[in-house]
Design a protein around this nucleic acid. Structure first.
Lengths: 112, 112
DNA sequence: CCTTGACACCTAGCTAAACTAAATGTAGGT
DNA sequence: ACCTACATTTAGTTTAGCTAGGTGTCAAGG
């Protein structure tokens, strides 16, 4: 599934990563790859704009720092971001369960 | 979740519906709403073009008929569509499990 | 009779998300 | 000197899903 489409669930994933502690963009990418066991190996051009989007939306805040000559932008989950994460977890659950029901086949109870 | 984004998993859902027997577009929409318990209530502008896409891709074949004065285009899953469905089921499973792992938090084993 | 709503199909055009493909720059190793 | 890993940025392409209309049949109700 490498380099595949995240299709609208990227925000959820990013918020979930940052929820476990502030991280800079590059570290978010690594963590996402690590946690998903290589399923999500996202290009920078996907993640960085998404982080900007989330900050603009007020879900993340960022601050610059310099570590060994390299500048980093570290993101922290805001309060709004935290509640957004909660909602998005919820809707992911509903979504994935709904897909499960569709894939399972006919919805009628057993008619023996 | 009504009127929400399906984001790339629509093909899978449509193939799964038609896999349970040939159906015309309108019936696909109803069946999808039924099976998902109202989670997926898709506009025609979403479903019809998707069915056309799937037919063009060789996953569905269609034939016209007339039932009580109304013309219907009925879609049937092709062999290629059937194997595509198999693959897409698989990749849905991997995808949803990967999301699950990310949402669950840190991937390391318990360190007591 | 005429309107409304369910049935049944179609599509031009908009939007936004994910990606490609570049660019910039530091640090460390060969 | 060059390459790779680290770290960030963004202009531009693609495309999926949706909006918002259009066409037409049939049955029911006012």
């Amino acid at each position: 599934m490498r380099g595949q489409a995240l299709k609208g669930h990227l925000d959820l994933l990013l918020l979930a990563i940052v929820a476990d502690g502030p991280k800079h963009g590059y570290a978010v990418i690594e963590e996402l790859r690590l946690r998903s066991e290589d399923a999500f190996d996202l290009p920078e051009g996907t993640v960085y704009p998404a982080l900007h989007r989330l900050e603009k939306a007020g879900y993340l805040s960022s601050s610059w720092s310099e570590v060994q000559g390299r500048r980093r932008r570290t993101y922290t989950l805001t309060k709004r971001g935290s509640s957004a994460l909660g909602e998005q977890r919820q809707s992911w659950n509903e979504f994935s369960q709904a897909v499960g029901r569709v894939l399972k086949g006919v919805p009628w109870p057993n008619t023996p």
